[in-house]
Design a protein around this nucleic acid. Structure first.
Lengths: 123, 123
DNA sequence: GAATTTATTCTACATTTGTAGAGTTAACTC
DNA sequence: GAGTTAACTCTACAAATGTAGAATAAATTC
C-alpha cells in the first residue's frame, strides 16, 4: 500500500511538524483550504494504510508519522531506480547530477558529501 | 496531466524501444500478460494525455514517446525536490548519497561525474 | 446553559485508474 | 474463401482517489 500524491502532501506536513493537530494541519494549507472533513478522510485512509497514528491528548488527537521520511523516500527513490534506471543507482545519480540545476557551489558541496561517504565506506 | 504508475511502466517499455508495436509490447510483459485490450486502453489514455503518438506502417501502428525520458524524470525529480526537500536539490542529493546503497566503486564513479559537472560549469 | 466552534465519523458522489469482454475489421493461412 | 489471428474501438465495471455534506459529540464562550 502506498500513498497518493495528495496523501503524500499531507504526510509531508505531518513529517515537518512531527506531531500535529487537525487545526494546525488546516492552517498549513494555503487558501482555498480544504474542508476539515476532507483532511479527516485522508487521515483516516492513511491510518488504515499504517502511515500515521495518533496520540490522544485529553480529547484531541495529535497525529504523527508511523514511517520516517527518509525510509519513505528511500523506498520511493529505490523503486524509481529499479523501475526506470535499470536498477542502477549510479545511472540515476548520473542522470541527477547532469539534469538537475545544481549551482557550482552545490556541486562542490555534493562532491564533499560523496567524498565523506567514500571515507565512511573505507573504514 | 501526468501518468499513473501503470502507465509509467508502459511508458518505460516504449522509451526503451523508441518505437514499438502492440505485439512487441505484449511480449515485453512477464506472465501473466495483460489482455491486449488493457494495453490498448492504456495507450489510448496516454495518447489523450499527449505522452505517446503513433506512426502508421501500412495498417499497423508503431507507438512512440512524445516526451523524452530525461525530461519526464527531470520534472518528476524536480517536483519531488520542490515538494519534499524544501526545494533544495542539494538536500535531495545529500539524502540520495547517504541513503541509497551505492558501492565504493559507484561512489567513486559518482565523484567523477560530479567533478566533470563542476568542470563544465567553470568554463 | 444556549450558542458557537472544532473534530470526528459516516455517507456520498464524481473522477481516475486497472482491467478486460464484445464487436469489428483487416491480415494471414490453408 | 472459410477459419484464425491481431489490433483496435466501445463499453463496462470495480477499486482508488479527491472532495465534502450531514450528523454527532465535545469544548469553548457568553
Amino acid at each position: 500500500m502506498s500513498l497518493s500524491k495528495t496523501e503524500e502532501q499531507l504526510m509531508e506536513i505531518i513529517w515537518k511538524k512531527g506531531e500535529i493537530f487537525m487545526k494546525e494541519i488546516i492552517e498549513t494549507y494555503p487558501d482555498p483550504k480544504p474542508a476539515t472533513t476532507t483532511i479527516a478522510t485522508l487521515l483516516k485512509r492513511m491510518q488504515v494504510k499504517k502511515f500515521v497514528g495518533y496520540q490522544l491528548y485529553g480529547n484531541s488527537r495529535a497525529y504523527f508519522p508511523l514511517i520516517k521520511k527518509s525510509d519513505y523516500f528511500s523506498k520511493h527513490v529505490n523503486g524509481m531506480i529499479k523501475d526506470y534506471f535499470d536498477n542502477s543507482a549510479l545511472q540515476f545519480a548520473s542522470f541527477f547530477a547532469t539534469n538537475t540545476k545544481l549551482s557550482q557551489n552545490e556541486l562542490e558541496e555534493l562532491k564533499k558529501i560523496v567524498e565523506a561517504q567514500i571515507k565512511k565506506g573505507e573504514s
